[in-house]
C-alpha cells in the first residue's frame, strides 16, 4: 500500500455547481480561465444536482497500463498517477482506456492532461466555496469517506443503466 498523506475528497451533495474549481484548475495549469482546459469538471444535472469529477488516482490505473512510453506512471510514494509530459508521444491510448473519461489530450499543446493534485496543494479544493472538494489528512474517517465514494463508482461501473 502506498503512503498517502492527504486525500482529495469530493462530496457531490455539497456542490453548488459554481464551476470555481474548473477556473482555479485551468488558471493553475494553463494560466487562463478556461473550463475546457481544466482537469476537473462539474457535471450539472437538474437543479441542485452537481458532481465534480476528476482523476481518481486509481490503484490499478488503466491509463498507465495503456501507456507504451511510460509517460504515465503510478507514484509509489504519493499514490498519484503522474505524467512525464516530455515522454508522451500523443497516441491517446490513455484517453481511450480511462473508464471515467478523466484524462484528456490537448492537441494544441501536444500534452496529456490530468489531475496532478497541484503537487500537494490542489487549487480546486482551496477555492471551492462549498467544501464539496476538500484536501484533508488521510486519517481513518477521511479514508472511509473516500472508500464510500469509490464504492459508488465501482457499483456504477458494474450496474449502471441510465
Amino acid at each position: 500500500m502506498e503512503k498517502i498523506e492527504s486525500l482529495l475528497l469530493i462530496t457531490p451533495e455539497r456542490c453548488i455547481g459554481c464551476g470555481t474549481c474548473e477556473l482555479a484548475c485551468s488558471i493553475g495549469h494553463v494560466g487562463e480561465f478556461k473550463p475546457t482546459a481544466s482537469n476537473i469538471s462539474v457535471l450539472r444535472f437538474e437543479a441542485g444536482v452537481n458532481v465534480p469529477m476528476t482523476c481518481l488516482q486509481c490503484d490499478k490505473p488503466a491509463c498507465v497500463a495503456a501507456c507504451k512510453t511510460s509517460a504515465l506512471h503510478k507514484d509509489a510514494e504519493t499514490g498519484l498517477v503522474g505524467i512525464d509530459g516530455a515522454r508522451c508521444i500523443g497516441c491517446r491510448m490513455c484517453v481511450m482506456a480511462c473508464p471515467f473519461g478523466n484524462i484528456s489530450y490537448n492537441a494544441a499543446a501536444k500534452q496529456t492532461m490530468k489531475c496532478d493534485q497541484c503537487g500537494g496543494a490542489p487549487m480546486c479544493a482551496e477555492f471551492c466555496p462549498a467544501k464539496a472538494i476538500e484536501y484533508l489528512p488521510a486519517d481513518t474517517a477521511n479514508v472511509q469517506r473516500k472508500k464510500a465514494f469509490a464504492a459508488k463508482l465501482a457499483a456504477g461501473l458494474s450496474e449502471v443503466n441510465v
Binding site: P12, F45, V49, G101, L153, V160, V162
Partner: peptide, 14 residues
Amino acid sequence: PRCRKIAEARTIVL
C-alpha cells in the same frame, strides 16, 4: 471520454 464522465457522475447521483 466526456460521456463516460457524465455516465459515472449520473451513477453517483442515482
